[in-house]
Amino acid sequence: MNNFEERYTAWLDGALDENERERFEAGLPDCEAARAEATEWAKLRGLLRETLVPAPMPHADFLNSQVLAAIHREEPKTESAREVVGRGWFSAGRLAWAGAFLLAVAAALSFVLVPRNGGAPTESQFISQVVDARSSDPKLGAYAFAAPGGKGAVLWVTDAGYIPANERIK
């Protein structure tokens, strides 16, 4: 407390100890006037304390219920704020469009890739078969039969020619 205002405020509040109070009062130019002012200040302070005492709340539960109701009313606004934040690239609408697009792509791919005759593959679909064989040369013949094991096929070409052993094949 270096300046006068601080020491004066402490003197008015009675916060100075005995030595400080005597020293401060000795330094006052008009001690009597100061004491009268301190008395007035003490009265005013007492009056304020009596007047500004918080009144007891008659219906505290009612107030609490009102506050809780107000909080509940605020919650939907919080949810809508979340929705606004989530309305970015992956909003519900865009996800729906993305899902529709994905279904369209899957349908297109399945149309291209899935067998058009439909249904589960039959045993014959896992077997190679010679459907047709012909030659423009009437001397040549071609016929087909199943290879041993049942899955493969043989295309048998008769009189397909002769290559001498001294002729390079590769």
């Binding site: 679909q125 077997i127 010679v130 459907v131 899955k151 295309l155």
Partner: peptide
Amino acid sequence: VVTSKVKLARGAP
């Protein structure tokens, strides 16, 4: 020499 139409199943030579 010959022209042929063949149905080739996977793994069936």
